[in-house]
Simulated assay, not measured.
Amino acid sequence: MTDLIEVRAANLIGAPLDWAVAKATDASELSIGEQGIVCIYDTPEGGCWTNLYQPSTDWSQGGLLIDEHQGGLSHDRHLSGSPCGCSAGPINSTWLSGPTALVAFCRSLVHAKLGPIVKVPKELLSCPN
């Protein structure tokens, strides 16, 4: 079993964020492949993904989650540390910020489903994805 490390949901990005989203959305057969996160995930339309899972950067995956969780997005120029000034979140939940709308939404979804501190595989923290 891989070592897990605690990270704030608000600080997640890249492969660790995608992993946490997969855990938060009950993806099955979750694994770490050479290219990134691989899992089986049922889509809202009844299909599934069995390839790379990158909802924090792929609108075909993250966009469906925004719809499924009735999420909202906002571009707020006053948010510091966020180039686009994006904040987002699921309905009736804490909104978090991020460098992109998808990252902000994914962080908020993880926070809503798993809490403000999550455990991710330590090996993902050095992944370039």
Rank of each mutant, 00 (worst) to 15 (best):
D18M: 03
E68K: 09
Y41I: 02
S28T: 09
L73V: 15
G14C: 10
V118K: 12
G85D: 01
L102E: 03
S97T: 13
W49R: 10
L12S: 04
K119P: 02
A112P: 00
H75T: 08
N129V: 15
A24L: 01
L79H: 12
H69F: 15
G72Y: 05
K113P: 00
P128H: 07
P55R: 07
F105G: 09
L12I: 07
K113E: 09
D58R: 15
I13K: 08
G71I: 05
I13M: 09
G81E: 03
A88W: 00
L79S: 03
T57D: 15
Q70P: 00
S60Y: 14
T100D: 06
N11D: 12
Y53K: 00
V120I: 11
A112M: 06
G89V: 01
L17S: 04
L30F: 02
D3E: 13
P83W: 06
A15R: 07
S87G: 10
P99L: 05
G63E: 05
Q54Y: 10
E34W: 11
S60A: 11
T100N: 07
K119E: 14
I32A: 00
P116A: 14
C86P: 01
G63W: 08
L30W: 04
P55S: 09
S87H: 09
G63H: 08
F105K: 09
G98M: 00
G14T: 02
N51C: 13
R8L: 10
A101D: 15
T25S: 08
Q61R: 13
C86R: 05
H78A: 11
I66R: 11
G85W: 00
A10I: 11
L96V: 12
I66F: 14
H78S: 15
P44Q: 04
N51H: 14
G89Q: 03
P44W: 01
G36P: 10
